[in-house]
């Protein structure tokens, strides 16, 4: 399993799996690991999304009407003749897509509802150093904490230095937000409502090594050793 923790190993395997060239026992082994590890599933899904764009350039091919009839029958879909208003709406959708988008955006933003908020965020933090290391971080709203999976490895911190988690904003002029420190015995950090709100506008998590003699600073003073993009889940 250890080799699958190295991004230089698991990312090419995830790509080969997504492309379909991972076969036989290697494929089965990888599928078993994917069932257990979120980061492998997420990596495969990301590459499937990228590679499957190749379907866009295929020349279209006429499909027999029986295929739709079969789908309709299986799903018991009753696609009624659209009403005048539906037809008008569809005309607008196709003939005037920009107008429809503006109307939808305005209605959504001001009159209907706010978009659902993520219930969790996940990040795979890769080492910025030469030695490969991966740490998974998941922030959950229902628990108001950030949990870490160190994948059986320890974060190497020289004596007197403490691994500290930072939340990096999407806006470059905003300073990073200090989320807390990682204790070797307790791989989680409790967060408050303000911190949770801060995750909405965040692009990355980063872990730096901060000297424990300095009182908690608002900016990283030490070296960033791990960083990774933050992805919302459960929207």
């Amino acid at each position: 399993m250890k080799r699958y923790k190295n991004p230089d190993i698991f990312e090419p395997l995830a790509m080969a799996y997504a492309l379909g060239t991972l076969h036989g026992k290697a494929r089965l082994r990888f599928e078993q690991l994917m069932a257990r590890h979120l980061y492998l599933r997420a990596t495969v899904q990301a590459y499937q999304q990228k590679l499957n764009g190749l379907a866009e350039i295929l020349p279209p091919q006429a499909v027999h009407a029986r295929v739709w009839q079969g789908i309709e029958q299986h799903l018991n879909l009753k696609v009624a003749q659209p009403s005048f208003w539906s037809r008008l709406q569809n005309q607008l959708n196709w003939a005037l897509p920009s107008l429809a988008a503006i109307i939808a955006a305005v209605l959504t933003a001001f009159f209907l509802h706010q978009p659902p908020k993520p219930q969790a965020y996940v990040a795979a933090l890769k080492s910025t150093q030469q030695h490969p290391q991966l740490v998974l971080a998941m922030a959950k709203h229902d628990e108001m904490k950030i949990s870490f999976d160190l994948l059986d490895q320890n974060i190497t911190n020289p004596q007197g230095m403490i691994p500290t988690l930072w939340c990096i904003s999407k806006k470059k002029d905003e300073p990073p937000m200090r989320m807390g420190t990682l204790e070797p015995t307790k791989p989680e950090i409790s967060i408050n409502a303000k911190m949770w709100q801060g995750l909405e506008g965040a692009s990355q998590f980063a872990i730096s090594l901060e000297p424990n003699t300095v009182s908690a600073s608002t900016q990283p003073q030490g070296e960033i050793i791990l960083s990774g993009t933050l992805h919302p889940l459960g929207q």
Binding site: L58, V63, N90
Partner: peptide, 21 residues
């Protein structure tokens, strides 16, 4: 269901081409 039928009409020719290959 209406959106599904429209989606099918617009995308099935390319997806069918992928399946055939």
């Amino acid at each position: 269901g209406i959106a599904f039928k429209q989606l099918y009409q617009h995308t099935s020719p390319k997806l069918y081409a992928l399946c055939c290959r």
